[in-house]
């Protein structure tokens, strides 16, 4: 019983959103687009919460603004741009790819590249060392000669 209740509460928690009934648009397609956009817009008060799940007053105003723009016929990108013009890239959870964010987007790949180069160098060094331990033809011949001489000494001793 307790487990069932817990499961139910967890399922309900996933549904929790701050969108209030009076904000929801009549057109389900537009409403779905509004919800999709709101999930990617940062609440400027709570900062780490999307406006979709924030109860802050400004978040509610922004949700209404998004719906207003959509009803007015804006595309999703136009709505996002409208918000960026007023609040900056900061309101987007996914920052755009442009010169000032190159470091942000490319640093992981640069680090991965540097790591690969370092790993490659280390691995090659190790295999080169292993190669040096193997005997070349000259050493091989010398060993054979020494072994032969040793064998000869041994057999003479046995006599």
């Amino acid at each position: 019983m307790r487990g069932l209740l817990a499961a139910l509460l967890i399922a309900l928690a996933g549904m929790a959103a701050a969108v209030e009934p009076d904000e929801i648009l009549d057109d389900p397609a537009l409403e779905a687009r509004a919800r999709e956009i709101s999930k990617d817009i940062r609440c400027v008060v709570c900062q780490n919460e999307p406006i979709d799940s924030s109860n802050a007053g400004v978040a509610r105003d922004l949700r209404l603004l998004i719906r207003e723009r959509l009803v007015a016929g804006d595309s999703d990108d136009e709505v996002r741009q409208y918000l960026v013009d007023r609040y900056g890239d900061y309101v987007l959870f996914k920052p755009p790819f442009k010169p000032s964010t190159y470091a942000l987007w490319l640093a992981p790949f640069v680090l991965l590249g540097l790591g690969s180069v370092a790993a490659g160098v280390a691995l090659r060094r190790r295999s080169m060392r292993a190669g040096a331990e193997a005997l070349n033809a000259e050493d091989e011949a010398r060993v054979a000669e020494l072994m032969a001489r040793y064998d000869g000494d041994q057999s003479r001793k046995d006599d």
Binding site: V44, V45, G57, V58, D61, L62, L65, R86, Y87
Partner: peptide, 11 residues
Amino acid sequence: GRSGLEWGISG
């Protein structure tokens, strides 16, 4: 609060 949004205020 609409003009507040135009100014980009957070509070």
